[in-house]
Structures are given as structure tokens and as C-alpha cells.
């Protein structure tokens, strides 16, 4: 992404209310001997859009995965929507119902159609009637602009279409928070835009979003705050304007100079 591509017109900052959506306090995590996260603390308010960036291996994805319990952590506290995430499976399940996640590799269920991918969780987890779940799924597939692909299998869709189905699938659970883990990194360049457009639309609708991405244009346009991580630590949290124009830390400057060649 070059500087020229960074759009100047940013979305107005979200009217983030006082309500806390996610609260991370002093989070530490080890993979065996390796210390992945060191004292990560972050507060996400409802309606806020946060972009997490940083070099690979810096622990960005791990933070997201700790929020919905895909990764256990050893020290610290994660509170999502008032629910403190421990090792209690029941609580983790509660949190997962409220947090949608979109993966780099889409992870659609290949044996189900796009529509069935979307209705599986509402029917099984929310115990919704099939007809109602399908109606909601159709509406959301329309919102990500692929209603005509509803009855196709993931293998018959392009990468961009698959990722948009994945977004619709997460939205079908009516989540309070959406997390994106490098959603465009596995896409061909010409498909990146259609996915980013969908995400911008979601931001405009007021969704609370936590996005790990290297798309700096998207970060500048959408983010309320940008979190820069390196070596398992949060180095800098700043508004997009300050982050790109007046980075505080040397490490941030170096990263930006590399990524914005």
C-alpha cells in the first residue's frame, strides 16, 4: 500500500459511547517457553473501530484469539461485554455468541452452501427456526452483495466472495463485536477492495470492530484508534492522523517507513 492510495476522506470518528465492549488488562501469554504477549492492556468502547497493526509475529492475531477464547492465556484478564473470560467453558461459549470472527483463510465449511454456512450457528446455537435463520442469512448475504451465490458451495466461489460469505456468516449471529484477522491477506489483489468495501460499510453501520490488517488505507479511513504492536507488546496507540503523521516511537517510525514505501 502506497501513500498515494491512502484515501484522504476518512469516516467521521465513531460516537463511541462510554460503554466498554472489551477490556483487556495485563494480558500475558506463553506458547511453551515463548512469551507471545507481554502485559497487553486495551479498552475497546462500544461502536469503536480499532485497527491493530505491526510486524508479523508481534502477537496481533493472538490478542484477537484470546478475546474469543480460541487461545488460552496464562495471566491477566479479558472482559468481553461484562463477561470475564476465564477457563470456564460456559462463559467462553457465551462470549463467542456475541463476538463474530473473520479469518485470514475464510474457514468456510466446504460441505455446506453459502446459505447453510450462514444458518448453521443461528439454528444450532441460538436455536432459531430454520425459516427465520434463512431469512436473516439471505438479508445479510444481500448486505455483503452476494445474494445470488446463496446456494453455491464455497469451492465454487472466488476468494473475495468466500470472505464476504464469512463476514455474513459472522453477522448472522448478530454479534456485538466483529473481529477481523488479516481478512484480505489471502486474497488476490483485485479482490481486496470488495472485502474492504464490505468492512467500510459495516463500520458506517456502527459496528464495534477490531481489525488486524496491513491495509493502511483502510486503517486511515476507518479506524478511530490504531494500535501498533511489536514483540508481544503494545508500542503505541494513537489516532490515525497522529499515527501516520506524527508517530511517537522509533519502532513505529521504522515500521511505517517499511510499509509505506
Amino acid at each position: 500500500m502506497t501513500v498515494a492510495e491512502i484515501k484522504p476522506d476518512t469516516i467521521a470518528p465513531s460516537r463511541a459511547g462510554g460503554e466498554v465492549a472489551v477490556e483487556i488488562r495485563g494480558l500475558y501469554k506463553w506458547f511453551g517457553e515463548f512469551n507471545v504477549l507481554r502485559d497487553v492492556s486495551l479498552t475497546v468502547r462500544r461502536g469503536e473501530r480499532i485497527v491493530i497493526c505491526g510486524p508479523s509475529g508481534s502477537g496481533k492475531s493472538t490478542v484477537l484469539r484470546c478475546i474469543n477464547g480460541l487461545e488460552p492465556f496464562q495471566r491477566g484478564e479479558v472482559v468481553v461485554d461484562g463477561i470475564s473470560l476465564g477457563n470456564d467453558l460456559k462463559r467462553i461459549a457465551e462470549v463467542r455468541r456475541e463476538v463474530g470472527m473473520v479469518f485470514q483463510q475464510f474457514n468456510l465449511f466446504p460441505h455446506l452452501t453459502a446459505l447453510e454456512n450462514c444458518t448453521l450457528a443461528p439454528i444450532q446455537v441460538r436455536k432459531m427456526a430454520k425459516a427465520q435463520a434463512e431469512e436473516i442469512a439471505q438479508r445479510l448475504l444481500k448486505r455483503v452483495r452476494i445474494p445470488e451465490q446463496a446456494n453455491k458451495y464455497p469451492g465454487q466461489l472466488s476468494g473475495g466472495q468466500q470472505q464476504r460469505v464469512a463476514i455474513a456468516r459472522a453477522l448472522c449471529m448478530n454479534p456485538k463485536l466483529m473481529m477481523f484477522d488479516e481478512p484480505t491477506s489471502a486474497l488476490d489483489p483485485e479482490m481486496v477492495k470488495e472485502v474492504l468495501d464490505t468492512m467500510v460499510q459495516l463500520a458506517l453501520d456502527g459496528m464495534t470492530m477490531l481489525v488486524v490488517t496491513h491495509e493502511m488505507g483502510f486503517a486511515r479511513q476507518v479506524a478511530d484508534r490504531i494500535v501498533f504492536m511489536d514483540a508481544g507488546q503494545i508500542v503505541e496507540v494513537n489516532t490515525p492522523d497522529e499515527f501516520f503523521n506524527h508517530p511517537q516511537h522509533e519502532r513505529t517510525k521504522l515500521f511505517l517507513s517499511q510499509i509505506l514505501k
Binding site: G69, A93, R96, G100, F103, F109, A121, A170
Partner: peptide, 27 residues
């Protein structure tokens, strides 16, 4: 069955047996 399938299913709130029944075993 790739690990991502387990993760995607868990992230949607499906439990272990639900994930097995609807996502993993069919594949």
C-alpha cells in the same frame, strides 16, 4: 479436516459435539 474448521465453528459459538456433528465429521 483443517484446524481452521474447528476454530471457525468454535468462534461461532458451537460446542465440541455440535462442531463434531455438523462441521468436522461430515468432512
Amino acid at each position: 479436516v483443517p484446524k481452521g474448521q474447528w476454530e471457525a465453528s468454535s468462534a461461532l459459538g458451537l460446542g465440541y459435539w455440535q462442531t463434531l456433528h455438523h462441521v468436522v465429521l461430515p468432512q
